[in-house]
Design a protein around this nucleic acid. Structure first.
Lengths: 261, 261
DNA sequence: CTCGGTTTGTTCCCACGTTCACAAACTCCT
DNA sequence: AGGAGTTTGTGAACGTGGGAACAAACCGAG
């Protein structure tokens, strides 16, 4: 096996982080201020809910209101926020604008993060045009594609450059986050190049398990996996509807010689 | 509030299911055969790894091999598979083709699921062209868009229909799964129409919390949230590098009157 | 048939995450 | 000023998930 660790594979929450801690060193470092992964994953949701509330002119809100806006339990919300500090006022609630800033600061989106997108096919186009990028603390530093035919294409107000520019772009803009939207076979090579160039966080849309060195974070977004999870539950619903049929199956599978429908 | 429950919001694993059970009824039903959510989320990953192995001509594989191919721990893999039954042979491993079928059956992708995609913008185009659809147990029954200007557009070998066709399409094809790729403001209305038409599973790409009635599953895919999670970790890495700076900040925040950089 | 080597299936234990429930703290009204 | 009503922050209980470790089962050689 290569020296890089193959710690990937979507441990239930879709993140490749080894549940916050793996090495003792990492554990100690995480303990410094440690916010649980599950909470980190919800902070952006709260942030969005707060922005919506702010746009509506709401100045203050209770944990209950914010929780329903974010689609979570109010107890969970309060516990999550308590990891950041005591930003609420008992008997009153939270100041929307203040909390919004505190969460944004904690996540790190008060500054702008330069991002490169690799693979400007259908999905790459969609990502490049996604307005949520610029409005939420991210700036597209470059669009890259290995296909020379695509180089020079205009997408939004950006030009597609050749993937060979990756080192130059990453160095020039100080890019730390890369988005991979290439076909699956190219993903690992692109990933290696990105990491070598200095990228330490990767969002992977290609349906492949990526191997990365220690210290590099990978998150995976996979349409087909999401659909399959839905299909599983859908199938169970269908079986539950025709309950007798389901029981028949179960029975049959216990009796050798009986063929399940 | 509407009568529909607002159980949404990405509980760490991105699924809106109330962690397998909420109502007592649902609990009892889940207990019938209960596969843990975390395991269900990994089955598609195993399935993909098995397909890759099969394409390479591998007839048999150990849990160790399959685990590394899927990017997980071998103990976890074995435990996951054990929920489905005993499909391996001790001292030998797993028959690739056999296990592949068993997992596909368990997930429910041995049959084809008809799917509708609503919102044929940049993202909708990308989804419609995604080859992983047809090859993995899903079939696009229709592309729908509320914008009359888009109706009649050709995407791949499908035509875009008006969203008003939703009831007809769902009824005709028996669609159970809907994909929402509209702008955020339209998402809830689209969702309501889909559910009313009979859709019971929704994959939501719009950056909004959807409210759905009991019994409808929602999974959310949100680019900007994924990026923000990466940004958080990236920020922590940066702080850890310049450790002295981090400590300075911490100190400053404890001393009133000292302005943090 | 027996024995050594291999690999699965499972048990046990620990850590993490969620939820409940309640004390502490704040506002407002009298 | 005091008390009633709210709402936060948190401690404790509970459930779920992950990983190590091991017994059971299988294969092949002798």
């Amino acid at each position: 096996m290569t020296p890089r660790s193959t710690r990937n594979g979507t441990p239930a929450d879709g993140v490749s982080r080894p549940t916050a801690a793996k090495t003792p060193a990492a554990h100690a470092r995480a303990g410094e201020r440690g916010i649980p992964e599950a909470t980190v994953a919800r902070l952006p949701v709260y942030l969005r809910a707060l922005i919506t509330l702010a746009e509506r002119g709401t100045a203050t809100c209770s944990s209950e209101e914010l929780a329903t806006a974010a689609g979570v339990n109010s107890a969970k919300l309060r516990k999550d926020l308590s990891y950041l500090g005591s930003y609420g006022t008992r008997g009153v609630g939270y100041d929307v604008e203040y909390l919004r800033y505190q969460i944004a600061r904690e996540i790190g989106v008060t500054q702008d993060w330069p991002v490169v997108i690799v693979g400007i096919g259908n999905l790459g186009h969609a990502l490049a045009n996604y307005s949520g990028f610029s409005s939420r603390g991210f700036r597209i530093a470059a669009l890259l594609d290995a296909d020379p035919a695509r180089a020079g294409d205009r997408v939004g107000d950006l030009l597609v450059s050749d993937f060979d520019q990756v080192e130059a772009v990453v160095a020039e803009h100080g890019v730390a986050i890369g988005v991979i939207a290439t076909p699956a076979p190219a993903a690992q090579d692109v990933c290696d190049r990105l990491v070598a160039a200095g990228v330490t966080s990767i969002l992977n849309f290609a349906p492949t398990v990526l191997s990365v060195p220690e210290g590099v974070d990978v998150r995976k977004v996979d349409l087909s996996i999401e659909l399959q999870i839905l299909a599983y539950h859908e199938q169970r619903k269908a079986l539950a509807d025709g309950r007798a049929v389901g029981l028949l199956d179960e029975l049959a599978s216990d009796l050798p010689g009986v063929v399940a429908r």
